[in-house]
Design a protein around this nucleic acid. Sequence first.
DNA 1: CGAGAAAAACTCATAATGAGAACAACTTGG
DNA 2: CCAAGTTGTTCTCATTATGAGTTTTTCTCG
Lengths: 275, 275
Amino acid sequence: MSEGIDGPADTPHGREHDADDERRFLAGYDPHAFAPVAVTVDVVALTIRDTVPHVLLGRRGQQPQNGRWALPGGFVRAQDGPNGPADPDLPDAALRVLTEKTPLPAELHLEQLGTYGAIDRDPRMRVVSVAYMVLAPDLPDPRTGRDTAEAAWVPWTALGHGDGARERYELAFDHARVLGDAIERARSKLEYTSLATAFLPSTFTVSALRGVYEAVWGRTLHAANFHRKIQATPGFVEDTGALAERGGAGGGRRARLYRAGGAALLHPPLLRGAP
Amino acid sequence: MSEGIDGPADTPHGREHDADDERRFLAGYDPHAFAPVAVTVDVVALTIRDTVPHVLLGRRGQQPQNGRWALPGGFVRAQDGPNGPADPDLPDAALRVLTEKTPLPAELHLEQLGTYGAIDRDPRMRVVSVAYMVLAPDLPDPRTGRDTAEAAWVPWTALGHGDGARERYELAFDHARVLGDAIERARSKLEYTSLATAFLPSTFTVSALRGVYEAVWGRTLHAANFHRKIQATPGFVEDTGALAERGGAGGGRRARLYRAGGAALLHPPLLRGAP
DNA sequence: CGAGAAAAACTCATAATGAGAACAACTTGG
DNA sequence: CCAAGTTGTTCTCATTATGAGTTTTTCTCG
């Protein structure tokens, strides 16, 4: 950024980068001279419970938007203060607010989704919110946070995504849009990355992996072709040598157990085509 | 976001969303009570000049990082002030700072890249920067902005990407990382979207389109197979019926002219495979 | 033990891709 | 004007990937 366009201070132009000059400049700098902007993080935590995709939501227990459901989130701590130490980076803030709702699993995928900053998205002041997406294996029921009346893993179908009951959960601010963006991101990332394994425990069967795809894409896949594709994609999964405890409920061969391989990108991708 | 975790005010918890209660809450709200955070936008503007990818940079003419090269950028205007009206949304801010350097072309692709907020990325204060990527056809040489000593379209090869001379342009702040992220994003987006046309004027030849891929990916493509692929992908390009003015410099058949089709996503994608 | 169920392996037709050859249409130099 | 060189476009063919279905293996349950 060419910071300084709206900056309160100005110093003589030097042609080269001069450390002493910069030190003098910083000593006279007042960070409070700007129009206030709040920076928050919101976390879209996705998991799959019993073949159905869920998102972690909390019901707001204070103003504004008191009573509505919202993504876990909070202000980024710019510097050390009464509430705790500063967040060294934005992902730290995302994990911090998530921890208030649920214990973190051993492995989880955290990725930045996007940043939302429309002037009217929060009635209090100008709020710029950095959204993160977390993909995690099935987790216990969430705990209620300090400012939250309830918290729950909510199935997508209860939110107007999918074909279930609509509008049972009314979302605060622009969180419906953020959630929609996250769902679309997750759907498309399954195509060309090995991210589906982030929804599963450390070892899993091919059927469980296929179940992730079917849950997130909302369609069934040809089991045999899926199996072939997974095997043929180098680095997607690694054989552990072990077998699953038992076959399905009503019998069936015991499936082989795999763990996630190292590959991040699938070449070629696994497309959710028309058929 | 569950805004309010660090908020300065608190009101009695109502179970349902109450508009009157919310109005009272907002009347007593002081936006200056937070630790100050600055929000900026940075723009990675990419274009292709004479078969070589370029990025728009300005040389800083003030502290901090005086004398270094930086992406066009500036503070987001949270509210109307002496410098001008507020930015209604973040993309407006991105286009505003870009306009200070170059006239905007008729069509351009603007997309959010990511947001960078490490605690030490700016020495003045906590700065959270929202980066945007712009893909544009070849543009005239930039104009020098208010706080900028020089501005120029700089080839990637001069920045340590590619195999050219390294480190001739030293970048300010974490802009090398932002630029690297943009380049990787552009490279991968060419695979599965029809975004390559954003680098070209409104009508173009298949060779020109192939030239975009070759420039961005830094490798040659099989001309005949590329041609077949483009034709076979519905909605990628539309035939205008016209022919290009003349063949190449040393002769050659006149190429057919196309315009960008409507398709955004390529199914199946166009992969930059090993061969 | 036999029926049913799930996992895994196999078959076959079709589509997409990489590589190269061939043909078409233009420019330039002699 | 013709020959050589250049670029755009079409075609062929071998290889690979995919969709769909069948078969085999190995398990549970009654």
